[in-house]
Amino acid sequence: MPRVLWFPAALALALVLLPVAGLLVRTDYARLPELITSPASLNALRLSLVTALLSTVLCVLLGVPLAVVLARAGGRAVRLLRAVVLLPLVLPPVVGGLALLFLLGRNGFLGYLLDVVAGVRVPFTTAAVVVAQTFVAMPFLVVSLEGALRGAGDRFERVAATLGARPWTVFRRVTVPLLLPALGSGAVLSFARALGEFGATITFAGSLEGVTRTLPVEIYQRAETDVDSAVALALLLIVVAVVVIAVARPRALEGVRS
Protein backbone atom coordinates (compact mmCIF):
# COMPACT_ATOMS: atom_id res chain seq x y z
CA MET A 1 0.00 0.00 0.00
CA PRO A 2 1.49 3.36 -1.01
CA ARG A 3 2.05 5.51 2.07
CA VAL A 4 0.59 8.53 0.30
CA LEU A 5 -2.89 6.97 0.68
CA TRP A 6 -2.82 7.74 4.37
CA PHE A 7 -3.46 11.41 3.79
CA PRO A 8 -6.75 11.21 1.82
CA ALA A 9 -7.75 8.28 3.99
CA ALA A 10 -7.37 10.40 7.10
CA LEU A 11 -9.33 13.19 5.45
CA ALA A 12 -12.12 10.77 4.57
CA LEU A 13 -12.23 9.50 8.12
CA ALA A 14 -12.28 13.04 9.44
CA LEU A 15 -15.18 13.88 7.16
CA VAL A 16 -17.18 11.03 8.69
CA LEU A 17 -16.09 11.36 12.29
CA LEU A 18 -15.78 15.09 12.89
CA PRO A 19 -19.46 15.93 12.32
CA VAL A 20 -20.38 13.15 14.73
CA ALA A 21 -17.87 14.60 17.15
CA GLY A 22 -19.62 17.93 16.62
CA LEU A 23 -22.87 16.30 17.70
CA LEU A 24 -21.20 14.93 20.81
CA VAL A 25 -19.85 18.37 21.68
CA ARG A 26 -23.24 20.00 21.17
CA THR A 27 -25.08 17.45 23.32
CA ASP A 28 -26.64 18.77 26.51
CA TYR A 29 -25.59 15.87 28.73
CA ALA A 30 -27.48 17.17 31.77
CA ARG A 31 -30.79 16.87 29.96
CA LEU A 32 -29.80 13.79 27.95
CA PRO A 33 -31.40 11.08 30.15
CA GLU A 34 -34.63 13.03 30.43
CA LEU A 35 -34.72 13.79 26.69
CA ILE A 36 -34.18 10.28 25.45
CA THR A 37 -36.47 8.60 27.97
CA SER A 38 -39.47 10.80 27.32
CA PRO A 39 -42.51 8.83 26.12
CA ALA A 40 -42.28 10.43 22.69
CA SER A 41 -38.64 9.39 22.33
CA LEU A 42 -39.24 5.85 23.50
CA ASN A 43 -42.26 5.50 21.24
CA ALA A 44 -40.22 6.71 18.30
CA LEU A 45 -37.35 4.37 19.15
CA ARG A 46 -39.62 1.38 19.52
CA LEU A 47 -41.41 2.17 16.27
CA SER A 48 -38.09 2.62 14.48
CA LEU A 49 -36.68 -0.68 15.69
CA VAL A 50 -39.84 -2.61 14.87
CA THR A 51 -40.31 -1.12 11.41
CA ALA A 52 -36.63 -1.36 10.49
CA LEU A 53 -36.62 -5.00 11.54
CA LEU A 54 -39.78 -5.74 9.57
CA SER A 55 -38.50 -4.03 6.48
CA THR A 56 -35.19 -5.88 6.77
CA VAL A 57 -37.14 -9.15 6.84
CA LEU A 58 -39.10 -7.98 3.78
CA CYS A 59 -35.87 -6.97 2.06
CA VAL A 60 -34.45 -10.45 2.64
CA LEU A 61 -37.60 -12.29 1.57
CA LEU A 62 -37.94 -10.28 -1.63
CA GLY A 63 -34.36 -9.20 -2.22
CA VAL A 64 -32.72 -12.63 -2.16
CA PRO A 65 -34.86 -14.00 -5.00
CA LEU A 66 -34.41 -10.77 -6.93
CA ALA A 67 -30.63 -10.87 -6.52
CA VAL A 68 -30.52 -14.50 -7.64
CA VAL A 69 -32.63 -13.75 -10.69
CA LEU A 70 -30.52 -10.72 -11.59
CA ALA A 71 -27.27 -12.60 -11.12
CA ARG A 72 -28.26 -15.82 -12.85
CA ALA A 73 -30.69 -14.89 -15.59
CA GLY A 74 -29.27 -13.60 -18.85
CA GLY A 75 -30.53 -11.26 -21.51
CA ARG A 76 -30.73 -7.59 -22.20
CA ALA A 77 -33.90 -7.13 -20.17
CA VAL A 78 -32.13 -8.35 -17.05
CA ARG A 79 -29.26 -5.93 -17.63
CA LEU A 80 -31.80 -3.14 -17.77
CA LEU A 81 -33.53 -4.39 -14.63
CA ARG A 82 -30.22 -4.35 -12.82
CA ALA A 83 -30.08 -0.61 -13.36
CA VAL A 84 -33.72 -0.12 -12.42
CA VAL A 85 -33.20 -1.83 -9.07
CA LEU A 86 -30.71 0.88 -8.16
CA LEU A 87 -33.24 3.66 -8.69
CA PRO A 88 -34.12 4.08 -5.02
CA LEU A 89 -30.44 4.80 -4.37
CA VAL A 90 -30.53 7.72 -6.77
CA LEU A 91 -34.01 9.06 -6.13
CA PRO A 92 -34.26 11.66 -3.39
CA PRO A 93 -36.21 9.80 -0.68
CA VAL A 94 -38.91 12.47 -0.76
CA VAL A 95 -39.50 11.69 -4.41
CA GLY A 96 -39.55 8.02 -3.51
CA GLY A 97 -42.23 8.82 -0.96
CA LEU A 98 -44.24 10.71 -3.57
CA ALA A 99 -43.86 7.80 -5.98
CA LEU A 100 -45.17 5.43 -3.34
CA LEU A 101 -48.03 7.82 -2.69
CA PHE A 102 -48.90 7.84 -6.38
CA LEU A 103 -48.93 4.05 -6.34
CA LEU A 104 -50.40 3.15 -2.96
CA GLY A 105 -52.07 6.42 -2.05
CA ARG A 106 -55.81 6.77 -2.05
CA ASN A 107 -55.75 7.94 -5.66
CA GLY A 108 -52.88 5.71 -6.72
CA PHE A 109 -53.99 2.82 -8.92
CA LEU A 110 -52.96 0.12 -6.50
CA GLY A 111 -54.08 2.08 -3.46
CA TYR A 112 -57.45 2.72 -5.02
CA LEU A 113 -57.84 -0.98 -5.77
CA LEU A 114 -56.86 -1.94 -2.22
CA ASP A 115 -59.28 0.60 -0.78
CA VAL A 116 -62.22 -0.46 -2.94
CA VAL A 117 -61.62 -4.22 -2.87
CA ALA A 118 -60.25 -4.81 0.61
CA GLY A 119 -60.98 -1.56 2.41
CA VAL A 120 -57.27 -1.21 3.13
CA ARG A 121 -55.61 2.19 3.16
CA VAL A 122 -51.87 2.21 3.34
CA PRO A 123 -50.81 5.84 3.87
CA PHE A 124 -50.66 7.09 7.48
CA THR A 125 -50.18 3.52 8.77
CA THR A 126 -47.20 1.72 10.23
CA ALA A 127 -47.35 -0.52 7.16
CA ALA A 128 -46.64 2.56 5.06
CA VAL A 129 -43.49 3.17 7.11
CA VAL A 130 -42.35 -0.39 6.46
CA VAL A 131 -43.07 -0.07 2.74
CA ALA A 132 -41.15 3.20 2.53
CA GLN A 133 -38.18 1.75 4.41
CA THR A 134 -38.18 -1.39 2.30
CA PHE A 135 -38.26 0.73 -0.83
CA VAL A 136 -35.12 2.66 0.08
CA ALA A 137 -33.26 -0.21 1.78
CA MET A 138 -33.79 -3.02 -0.71
CA PRO A 139 -31.11 -1.92 -3.21
CA PHE A 140 -28.43 -2.22 -0.53
CA LEU A 141 -29.30 -5.86 -0.01
CA VAL A 142 -29.75 -6.69 -3.68
CA VAL A 143 -26.52 -5.02 -4.74
CA SER A 144 -24.38 -6.73 -2.13
CA LEU A 145 -25.99 -10.13 -2.80
CA GLU A 146 -25.80 -9.82 -6.55
CA GLY A 147 -22.14 -8.90 -6.36
CA ALA A 148 -21.44 -11.91 -4.18
CA LEU A 149 -23.40 -14.23 -6.47
CA ARG A 150 -21.68 -13.03 -9.60
CA GLY A 151 -18.30 -13.18 -7.91
CA ALA A 152 -18.84 -16.76 -6.78
CA GLY A 153 -20.18 -17.91 -10.13
CA ASP A 154 -22.52 -20.90 -10.45
CA ARG A 155 -19.90 -23.65 -10.23
CA PHE A 156 -21.17 -25.02 -6.93
CA GLU A 157 -24.74 -24.96 -8.16
CA ARG A 158 -23.76 -26.91 -11.27
CA VAL A 159 -21.93 -29.52 -9.24
CA ALA A 160 -24.93 -29.83 -6.93
CA ALA A 161 -27.20 -30.38 -9.93
CA THR A 162 -25.00 -33.17 -11.28
CA LEU A 163 -25.20 -34.75 -7.84
CA GLY A 164 -28.94 -35.09 -8.29
CA ALA A 165 -30.14 -32.00 -6.43
CA ARG A 166 -33.29 -30.46 -7.84
CA PRO A 167 -33.23 -26.68 -8.45
CA TRP A 168 -35.04 -25.93 -5.20
CA THR A 169 -32.68 -28.18 -3.24
CA VAL A 170 -29.72 -26.48 -4.89
CA PHE A 171 -31.10 -23.09 -3.90
CA ARG A 172 -31.80 -24.17 -0.33
CA ARG A 173 -28.71 -26.25 0.38
CA VAL A 174 -26.07 -24.55 -1.76
CA THR A 175 -27.00 -21.07 -3.01
CA VAL A 176 -28.40 -19.69 0.22
CA PRO A 177 -25.74 -21.10 2.60
CA LEU A 178 -22.97 -19.81 0.36
CA LEU A 179 -24.71 -16.47 0.29
CA LEU A 180 -25.00 -16.15 4.07
CA PRO A 181 -22.00 -13.87 4.65
CA ALA A 182 -23.12 -11.45 1.96
CA LEU A 183 -26.70 -11.82 3.16
CA GLY A 184 -25.61 -10.88 6.66
CA SER A 185 -23.76 -7.76 5.66
CA GLY A 186 -26.47 -6.84 3.15
CA ALA A 187 -29.14 -7.21 5.81
CA VAL A 188 -27.17 -5.07 8.25
CA LEU A 189 -26.80 -2.38 5.59
CA SER A 190 -30.51 -2.55 4.81
CA PHE A 191 -31.40 -2.36 8.48
CA ALA A 192 -29.17 0.66 8.97
CA ARG A 193 -30.66 2.37 5.93
CA ALA A 194 -34.20 1.57 7.08
CA LEU A 195 -33.40 2.87 10.55
CA GLY A 196 -32.22 6.18 9.15
CA GLU A 197 -34.99 6.48 6.56
CA PHE A 198 -36.79 9.79 6.75
CA GLY A 199 -37.79 11.48 3.52
CA ALA A 200 -39.90 8.73 2.01
CA THR A 201 -41.47 8.00 5.39
CA ILE A 202 -42.62 11.53 6.13
CA THR A 203 -43.91 11.95 2.58
CA PHE A 204 -45.68 8.64 2.27
CA ALA A 205 -46.57 7.69 5.83
CA GLY A 206 -46.89 11.03 7.56
CA SER A 207 -45.97 11.67 11.16
CA LEU A 208 -47.99 10.51 14.16
CA GLU A 209 -46.55 9.44 17.47
CA GLY A 210 -46.51 5.68 17.95
CA VAL A 211 -47.88 5.01 14.46
CA THR A 212 -45.66 6.60 11.85
CA ARG A 213 -43.32 8.91 13.72
CA THR A 214 -40.03 7.05 13.62
CA LEU A 215 -36.89 8.28 15.32
CA PRO A 216 -35.62 10.25 12.31
CA VAL A 217 -39.01 11.91 11.86
CA GLU A 218 -39.11 12.74 15.56
CA ILE A 219 -35.61 14.19 15.28
CA TYR A 220 -36.61 16.28 12.29
CA GLN A 221 -39.61 17.63 14.11
CA ARG A 222 -37.64 18.50 17.23
CA ALA A 223 -34.85 20.11 15.22
CA GLU A 224 -37.40 22.74 14.27
CA THR A 225 -38.11 23.76 17.85
CA ASP A 226 -35.70 22.21 20.32
CA VAL A 227 -32.25 21.53 18.92
CA ASP A 228 -30.89 20.00 22.13
CA SER A 229 -33.60 17.45 22.15
CA ALA A 230 -33.01 16.65 18.46
CA VAL A 231 -29.30 16.21 19.09
CA ALA A 232 -30.00 13.90 22.02
CA LEU A 233 -32.24 11.72 19.89
CA ALA A 234 -29.73 11.71 17.06
CA LEU A 235 -27.18 10.41 19.55
CA LEU A 236 -29.60 7.65 20.46
CA LEU A 237 -30.01 6.76 16.78
CA ILE A 238 -26.25 6.64 16.29
CA VAL A 239 -25.79 4.41 19.33
CA VAL A 240 -28.47 2.01 18.09
CA ALA A 241 -26.94 1.87 14.60
CA VAL A 242 -23.42 1.32 15.92
CA VAL A 243 -24.60 -1.42 18.25
CA VAL A 244 -26.49 -3.18 15.48
CA ILE A 245 -23.54 -3.04 13.09
CA ALA A 246 -21.05 -4.08 15.75
CA VAL A 247 -23.17 -7.01 16.86
CA ALA A 248 -24.37 -8.23 13.50
CA ARG A 249 -21.46 -7.55 11.20
CA PRO A 250 -18.83 -9.98 12.56
CA ARG A 251 -21.40 -12.76 12.81
CA ALA A 252 -22.47 -12.13 9.27
CA LEU A 253 -18.90 -12.38 8.09
CA GLU A 254 -18.42 -15.64 9.93
CA GLY A 255 -21.52 -17.12 8.37
CA VAL A 256 -19.60 -19.48 6.14
CA ARG A 257 -17.71 -21.11 8.96
CA SER A 258 -20.52 -21.44 11.49
Binding site: R155, V159, T162, L163, G164, R166, P167, V170, P177
Partner: peptide, 21 residues
Protein backbone atom coordinates in the same frame (compact mmCIF):
# COMPACT_ATOMS: atom_id res chain seq x y z
CA UNK B 1 -33.25 -34.23 -19.00
CA UNK B 2 -32.02 -31.63 -16.49
CA UNK B 3 -28.66 -32.39 -14.80
CA UNK B 4 -30.22 -33.59 -11.56
CA UNK B 5 -32.32 -36.24 -13.30
CA UNK B 6 -29.52 -37.86 -15.31
CA UNK B 7 -27.82 -40.12 -12.79
CA UNK B 8 -24.40 -38.73 -13.60
CA UNK B 9 -21.49 -37.92 -11.33
CA UNK B 10 -19.01 -35.20 -12.19
CA UNK B 11 -15.47 -34.82 -10.92
CA UNK B 12 -13.84 -31.69 -12.22
CA UNK B 13 -10.35 -30.29 -12.13
CA UNK B 14 -11.28 -28.18 -9.12
CA UNK B 15 -12.76 -30.31 -6.29
CA UNK B 16 -15.51 -27.70 -5.70
CA UNK B 17 -16.40 -29.12 -2.31
CA UNK B 18 -19.24 -27.16 -0.75
CA UNK B 19 -17.39 -24.94 1.73
CA UNK B 20 -20.31 -24.72 4.16
CA UNK B 21 -20.69 -28.48 4.61
Amino acid sequence: LPPHARGTGLLAQDPLLFPHL
